[in-house]
Amino acid sequence: MRAFGTRVLVHLFLFVVLVFNLMPFFWMISTSLKTDAEVHMIPPSWWPRTPTLEEGYGKVLMWTNFPRYFFNSTVVSLSAALISTLVGALAGYGFSRFYFRGRTFLIGVLLASQMLPGVLLVGPYFKMLVRIGLYDSHLGLILAFSTLTLPFSAWLLKGFIDTVPHELDEAALLDGCTRLQAFVRVVFPLITPGMVATIIFAFLLAWGDLLWALCLTTTDAMATVTLGLSRLVTQFRVIWPQLMAGAVIAAFPPMILYLLLQNYLVKGLTGGAVKE
């Protein structure tokens, strides 16, 4: 009887959590399907009387620069993800397979660099970009995001490379491969799951950032989705259906990717402290 009571309580608790978690999604989608007039009705309607795509989605895609923001975010996030993963895989191999002077120290530096706050770095980085003419460019953002995610990529991939037996690359070396060839031909294919994980993680970090995009770009044509949407909200009158339609579109890619990746993320972020 007690066990049954507990089970009911657990399910009740989970139901409350479910409502709390889903409410914002419901409101975001509901608002994105309303007309601007319906948003201002009192009392507000929970679900649009006649759901419409034109007011929210149509206008944010046709009347604002949103498609351009989406393009910018895609280019920047994808490039940063690829660079971070490639460079991270090389570093992971270096740390996994070699002992060298200062190895422990450099691992410490790598991990500590994750702690640095963005606001400390972004100011001087901005000044540097202005001097070399990369301010308000994709490249400045790509370099920033590649590096910010690099410690995570290198560390997660080192873990993956550790699980590949040394004998495999040693056999390749005996067959006359160089170290780099051994890495590319033997280890690379075996750590694909890890590389997919770091690509997605770096992509997500770049996609969700606001601070760096806010400080390193100025023209509307260079804005990312998060920056573009945040500017829509600070205008003197917020048009909620457009804003929420933009939010739905911008939230969609990361949502899918996170769900694919959840287990790797836990493993990577906790540094293997959580074993499967």
């Binding site: 998060t226 939010a247 939230a251 990717l257 996170y258 959840q262």
Partner: peptide, 17 residues
């Protein structure tokens, strides 16, 4: 997990709404 998959900027916008 779903709320964590949303970038914090977008979470802020939705809650502001």
């Amino acid at each position: 997990i779903l709320p964590w998959t949303v970038p914090d900027v977008i979470a802020g916008l939705v809650w502001a709404c």
